[in-house]
Amino acid sequence: MDETRLSRRGLLAAASAGFAGAVAGCTEPRADNSIEGNSSHGIDRDNLADGSTYTDVYEGIIDSVTQIRAFGVDDPVTGEEGRGQGSGFVIDDSHVVTNQHVVAGAEDVDLQYINGDWSSTRLVGTDYYSDLAVLDADHVPDAATPLSLDDERPVVGQQVVAIGNPYGLEGSMSAGIVSGVERTLSPPGRQFSFSDVVQTDAAVNPGNSGGPLVDLDGDVVGVVNATSGENIGFAVSATLASRVVPSLIADGTYEHPYMGIGLRTVDRLVAEANDLSAATGVIVTDVFAGEAAAAAGLRGSDETVERRGEPIPVGGDVILALDGAPIPDRHALSTFLALETSPDDTITVDYWRDGSEQSTTLTLGSRPEV
């Protein structure tokens, strides 16, 4: 753990002693009359109330959170060129982390820090499959110390805050808890799922995307990504970001492991249709030619039957474990691959076929480029 992280943890831990109780996409290009908040750096901080633990977290983090302006993006409704907006945070002495979709297609990307400073940037790398991107900033204020990606996985009930710029309202903070972990999120318009997603009830809205979701020690537990309903938000986990971001800085890209299968969680209907004794595991619905699963001899479903008006796959292998780790559902499979494996790794697959448990080895490939 580096000295920056220790100092931030020390400051915030002292403030939180004895404390008890207490995913948003980027905005579309905006018209001139849309909401835009005033910078909070003009506040007279010598004449404020004492605040709370949350105030101390905010003060320890806010200098490192940026507002992102992406110029030259296309309006998804009109198709006209405009401006997008999101959030980001400083990860080292020159790099800023945000979401890939915040900067996708932009001709220029500028940052504004809470002290009012502006900076131009260069795009270092993006990863479509985790929706992460890294920018190289021409200017980082001295007060914008790097934030740390938490090396401990969050737990349900843990207190967190989201800091960013919803609807362009600079320097906003919302508080909540981690309300779910190891989620698999299927974003609109993308033919894949994000792995190891953190769910929170902290309010996040358009413009929060790319900003940090932090714990009360000031460590980043997730990169805010999206929201799909009221009182629920999502963030790409710090655990996954800690694998992706260094690769983006070093190489500009990140390769995700790939089995080359379609799958579905085994629920009661799938178990009954396939004569399984328990509703656990994932059934292979498709095996893609030329990919890792095909080379390993895994078998996909050869038919479907209808149960309660729903097509149910029949006949595919049911994956029970990977390298000895139980795989009760598709979330567990996705998380295991994302956090425990890399392309070219060889793993053991335990599966159920034709009334008996079997095993094979599989050498992982790389997810196809978009």
Rank of each mutant, 00 (worst) to 15 (best):
L147C: 09
P188W: 03
T335P: 04
L149M: 14
A22V: 13
R153W: 08
G51I: 09
T98G: 05
G21T: 13
Q112R: 14
V160C: 03
D267Y: 04
I327G: 02
Q358Y: 00
N274Q: 11
P154I: 09
A175L: 11
E255S: 15
T121I: 12
A49M: 10
G324E: 04
V23F: 10
G189E: 14
L269E: 14
S52Q: 08
R69T: 15
A226V: 03
V57W: 07
V109K: 04
G125F: 02
G25C: 01
S40L: 14
T184V: 13
D329I: 06
A203K: 10
P146L: 11
E340G: 06
D323H: 00
D2E: 13
G300I: 13
M1T: 14
D46T: 15
V57Y: 06
G260N: 04
D215P: 10
E255A: 15
G157H: 07
A31C: 06
S342I: 00
C26S: 13
L132G: 02
V244W: 07
L339C: 07
V236H: 03
A143V: 09
D136C: 00
E306I: 13
P188I: 11
A175S: 14
D350R: 14
E3W: 00
A321N: 05
D110Q: 13
Y351I: 00
S94I: 07
P246M: 09
D345Q: 11
N231T: 11
G116W: 10
I61K: 01
D127H: 08
A325K: 09
M1W: 06
S7P: 01
L185C: 03
